[in-house]
Amino acid sequence: MTHIHPDLLEDAQQRFGELHNVREVMTKRESGAISLGRLYAYVQGAQDDAVQDILGRDLKVRRVYRSLLQKSALVHMPQALAASTQDYPERHADGCHIRLQASRAQSDQLYLIVEMSDQRRDMPQSLHLFGPDETMVRVALPAARNGVIQTIIERNSDAARLLGEPKTEIFLR
């Protein structure tokens, strides 16, 4: 039993609003957003279709993603200053060398080769490319062998396009 004092009406109404909102928040659900933790897990290599989807269409999320990467990347290759004459410029930074090599067997495919000079350090598991137009591609990398990580990408893929662009910013994680 509770006495309802009219003189408390205004204060009680505000408190009721807060209680009501808490109950709504605790009982109702609304889709469409992702949390920073989920984005962070994706940066660390987790598979998440929803995050992948939102990264493809939301520039703001991509920028947050890049910021998280910057804090945890093993290697960061900023935009190259000089233009390259090669189709696929080689990129160097911090004991790491990234290059593309055309496949003889399949002309529509390229070998993506990451060479780490210090094999004692942690080896990257993913390559993240940020183009000058703020497009973004993530390539999962296989395990390293003798400091070399090698995989295949399609010549007409976004990854190949971005690797051909010297102004692409590269993170290895």
Binding site: R29, E30, S31, A33, G37, R38, A46
Partner: peptide, 26 residues
């Protein structure tokens, strides 16, 4: 028409551990 606060709260409810369990107890 969507409620951003609810969506933000829901997103946090959906954050999971590596094993797929909710990270935060309701």
């Amino acid at each position: 028409g969507k409620d951003p606060l609810l969506a933000d709260f829901t997103a946090l409810c959906e954050t999971t551990t590596l094993q797929g369990a909710p990270k935060y107890a309701l």
